[in-house]
Write a protein that binds this DNA or RNA. Structure first.
Length: 259
DNA sequence: ATGGCCCGTAGAACGGGA
């Protein structure tokens, strides 16, 4: 089973690329962030014609998440939930579903804007609530669980093109990294780091400054898995090809192969 | 030179992203 995450930065703009990507990768599960579409505008029909069932939660202009699952392999998303029951939140950043025997949690962590800002405080609080919600789910040790999405956290300096420039900045600050480690302390494992990877592997590059061509990026999109799933993960990689296209998202997909 | 780009909502610039 192939599971993936991709911040598409507007599904309206990126739908043709998403359809291309699904056709070429034949991914079984794809988690999307920043769809930026209200539910009435979600392209469920086009995706269904491409062989994918969908669960989605959107709002105007900002945020928006979705889980796509391949009908002929894993079937439709089941037991869909939106948001975190422990955290009232207007923003559509979290959707979960059971697919192919895995509890898939698709998350769009807040950006945080700048350390010390109101948005930064919201980000830390949002993650704390996520931790409180996930802890008993993981401790119960039931269905294998995968947390996929745009975490807006570069966990370590090796995930940053210029650690000195980014030191202490939002996405790299210690309180954010502490919370990433708190997720790991729950038993979640960074699938990407289970394998030998190229140095300077990133998932996001700014649209400005020719950042992609210069590989000035950050690794902020992640796939985390519980121990029982970890044993079944046979590969994990970043699909940089999508970032090379015309009119790309600023994020690249991350893909994990599960036995 | 500390900003450069892209997207949505506008129906012009601006907020937000990261």
């Amino acid at each position: 089973m192939k599971i993936a995450t991709w911040n598409v930065n507007s599904l309206k703009v990126r739908l043709p690329q998403v359809l291309d990507w699904l056709a070429s990768t034949r991914a079984d599960v794809l988690c999307l962030q920043e769809t930026k579409l209200t539910d009435d505008k979600f392209p469920a029909e086009a995706l269904a014609q491409a062989g994918y069932e969908t669960a989605f939660a959107g709002q105007p202009t900002y945020n928006g998440v979705a889980i796509l699952s391949r009908r002929d392999s894993v079937g439709a998303p089941a037991s869909v939930t939106v948001g975190n029951p422990l955290h009232a939140d207007e923003q559509k950043r979290l959707i979960s579903a059971s697919v192919g025997g895995v509890r898939v949690i698709c998350a769009y962590f807040p950006n945080g804007q700048a350390v010390g800002s109101d948005k930064y405080a919201y980000k830390l609080g949002w993650i704390d609530a996520l931790l409180r919600w996930l802890e008993p789910q993981i401790a119960a040790g039931g269905e294998p669980l995968a947390l996929l999405g745009d975490f807006n956290i570069a966990p370590e300096d090796r995930d940053v093109h210029d650690p000195k420039l980014w030191a202490g900045q939002v996405l790299c600050s210690e309180p954010e990294r502490e919370r990433f480690r708190a997720l790991q302390a729950l038993g979640l494992v960074d699938a990407f780091r289970l394998f030998e990877q190229p140095e300077k592997s990133y998932t996001w590059w700014d649209y400005r400054q020719m950042a992609f061509r210069r590989n000035m990026g950050l690794r902020i999109d992640h796939i985390l898995v519980t121990p029982s799933l970890r044993e079944r993960v046979t590969a994990c990689s970043i699909d940089r090809d999508m970032r090379k296209r015309e009119q790309p998202s600023d994020h690249a997909p991350v893909v994990a192969q599960i036995e």
